[in-house]
Design a protein around this nucleic acid. Structure first.
Length: 630
DNA sequence: GCAAAAATGAAGCATGGC
DNA sequence: GCCATGCTTCATTTTTGC
């Protein structure tokens, strides 16, 4: 309890009728080409030195997106020509670009291959020897040969076995130890890769994690690429690491920054076990928000090659999760830096969320019309009753439950004691409850929680999106409180519009009431296929109703449980529909949310641990997509 | 028995005084 | 720089009413 000095003894008890206490606390580029990051204005000079795409009938946005994905202007121009010039579809161009990428890799010059393996730590003479034997295109054979050479060298140094070199053939090494030979032959591919990586001076732990993440079919090269990408991404942590970890200081007393949390004694938390922490930015504008061009920025760390789309993916969860959670989430999503955004920059309600995705971030645009920016604009009927001493223009986060009627009634009774403005201490107490429960003024001295349709409006959904079909009022609040803010998500997804003018295939996990689908619809991106996974029958009904009411021509296929969506089923779906272009979803926040008083235990919680199914499914889709591309 | 309403703090960051 | 305090938070459990 926090005491509030009423002074005149007329404090209001908002919680219980007879309680003597005071108020309750009134209380992703192709691997062969570098990623280019260009500011919005930097596209200008690029055009002057590049082929004239406009004449080719391709929009600036599409070209900019390709450039941002790391393709050169020349490569893009060639792809456009090959796919039909001005009439070509961005998606076809994109496929062609990826084919170039693969082709480029396969036809690399000998010098490039030599550099590549030397860069991996192999001796130059061994690299040249392997290329002479296997040619410069057979990367796997070269890799295996180099690993064999390395193993022989190592054994030679330790004199554990006798090495017989055939003087007549310098290219051949043979092991005289039958036992060792058998051991090598019998080891599984995974073990072989693990051993190879360890020989390359990667730690066993690092190698094991990379193998697990790349899948059992991955080659040594793919795993090494993955590790290198992860190492690059980790550089970002320099910006977010605690200063005392980043740069040990002798002086224990140092200035505290905005992002450095205060040190307090608190009980251990599983979510805090992570060594690496990602701190939230003071102002959550992500990589940019509309109408604030000065704040537009690039990703602090490029999306690693292994994570570049297709498929594109988009993951969301609450920003203010327990310590260490976002570092863990990021580490499971290719070490991509989260984009923290508060939806108050898009609408009249706050919604602090973290997003991890591999989408381009330039040339985003807002869906039209833009939402109202203040409470009073969004809810005009409240203007008449809004007292001057309530200075709110934005609502707090829209939650899953609302204030009780008893509370609003007690506030009314308290305010009716005064003819004019209530005293400051009453104002303060009323304001606390207003902010806590997102109450709005609906009459003289009358406060009320938001109606479901008002929440729909604020969150960017069509009116009555969640109404009817047997869903209770309570469940409407719950579903809306758990949903995306459509305008925010649409802003991020808008970059897909020029890339998929003929429609998109979506795998929607934890669909909820279809925030992602509504965003794509409002962006006028045709949904050719939506495979939706949602546990709640009420929410599935809402999505199906939306699908029918908006006359969607595509296929909507529904599943209930992400845990039961196994790899075989995913691959079957991808074979059936030709793959997925976008994997979107926000896993349950129940065990992360600040409002959870009982089981805020982090990602290991019963609900929030479903995040790992998101990762599993995304890995399967990515692996299958690579196979299909090949 | 079921659905809806009501009651239930604490984690974690920001801010300001000293 | 330390500390107290303010503020916000995609929730869960218990109680109530039909």
């Amino acid at each position: 309890m926090v005491e509030h000095s009423g002074g005149d003894g007329d404090d209001v008890n908002w919680n219980t009728d007879d309680d003597e206490h005071e108020i309750d606390n009134f209380q992703f580029s192709p691997s062969s080409s570098p990623v280019q990051f260009m500011s919005e204005t930097s596209y200008g000079p690029a055009e002057t030195t590049s082929p004239n795409f406009i004449q080719k009938g391709i929009s600036d946005e599409v070209v900019a997106s390709f450039i941002e994905m790391g393709f050169s202007s020349e490569m893009i121009a060639r792809a456009i020509e090959e796919t039909g010039g001005g009439s070509s579809e961005p998606r076809m161009i994109l496929e062609t670009l990826f084919n170039y990428s693969a082709s480029t890799e396969a036809s690399s010059s000998k010098a490039k291959v030599i550099d590549h393996f030397i860069g991996m730590g192999f001796p130059e003479e061994n690299v040249i020897k392997a290329i002479q034997e296997y040619g410069d295109e057979n990367i796997d054979e070269i890799t295996n040969a180099l690993l064999t050479y390395a193993e022989v060298d190592r054994l030679g140094e330790t004199n554990d076995v006798n090495i017989n070199t055939n003087d007549d053939d310098d290219n051949l090494y043979s092991l005289s130890s039958d036992d060792d030979e058998d051991e090598l032959n019998n080891s599984s591919q995974e073990d072989s890769i693990l051993q190879a990586l360890i020989k390359m001076d990667y730690s066993r732990e690092e190698a094991a994690i990379a193998i697990e993440r790349c899948g059992e079919d991955a080659s040594v090269e793919e795993v090494v690429d993955f590790i290198c990408a992860a190492q690059m991404a980790r550089q970002f942590d320099e910006f977010f690491a605690e200063p005392d970890r980043k740069e040990p200081m002798n002086n224990s007393k140092k200035r505290r920054t905005y992002n450095e949390p205060q040190r307090r004694e608190r009980k251990p938390n599983a979510a805090m076990a992570s060594d690496q922490l990602i701190y939230l930015p003071k102002e959550m504008i992500g990589f940019g928000v509309p109408n604030r061009p000065g704040l537009m920025m690039n990703r602090p760390v490029p999306v690693p090659d292994i994570a570049c789309g297709p498929p594109f993916f988009y993951y969301e969860n609450v920003a203010m999760a327990p310590k260490g959670v976002w570092a863990t989430i990021s580490s499971h999503l290719y070490d991509i830096v989260p984009e923290f955004v508060d939806s108050k920059h898009f609408c009249a309600a706050a919604r602090k969320r973290g997003y991890i995705h591999n989408l381009p971030i330039h040339n985003r645009f807002q869906i039209q019309p833009p939402p109202h920016n203040t409470i009073q604009e969004a809810l005009p009927l409240t203007k008449r009753w809004w007292p001057s001493w309530d200075g709110r223009t934005k609502l707090n986060c829209l939650l899953t439950c609302i204030a009780s009627a008893k509370l609003t009634n007690r506030i009314r009774e308290a305010l009716e004691k005064y003819d004019g403005e209530p005293p400051l201490h009453v104002q303060k107490q009323v304001m606390y409850q207003c902010k806590k429960w997102n109450l709005v003024w609906v009459g003289k001295n009358k406060l009320a929680p938001l109606e479901p349709d008002e929440m729909e409006k604020l969150l960017g959904f069509p009116r009555d999106h969640t109404r009817g079909g047997g869903i209770s009022r309570t469940d409407r609040y719950k579903s809306l409180g758990n949903s995306f803010q459509v305008d925010t998500v649409a802003y991020h997804l808008s970059v897909l519009k020029p890339l998929f003018p003929n429609g998109i295939r979506v795998l929607s996990l934890f669909t909820g009431i279809g925030g992602g689908e509504v965003a794509l619809h409002r962006l006028q991106i045709r949904m050719n296929v939506v495979v939706s996974v949602e546990i709640s029958e009420a929410n599935r009904n809402i999505l199906r109703s939306f699908w029918e009411q908006t006359n969607q021509k595509g296929i909507l296929r529904e599943f209930k449980d992400v845990e039961k969506l196994d790899d075989h089923t995913i691959e079957q779906l991808m074979d059936e529909y030709g793959g997925f272009d976008l994997v979107i979803g926000g896993s349950p926040c129940n065990n992360l949310a600040g409002g959870n008083r009982h089981s805020r235990v982090g990602l290991e919680g019963a609900h929030s641990s479903l995040f790992f199914d998101y990762c599993r499914i995304l890995d399967t889709v990515s692996r299958k997509t690579r196979q299909m591309r090949r």
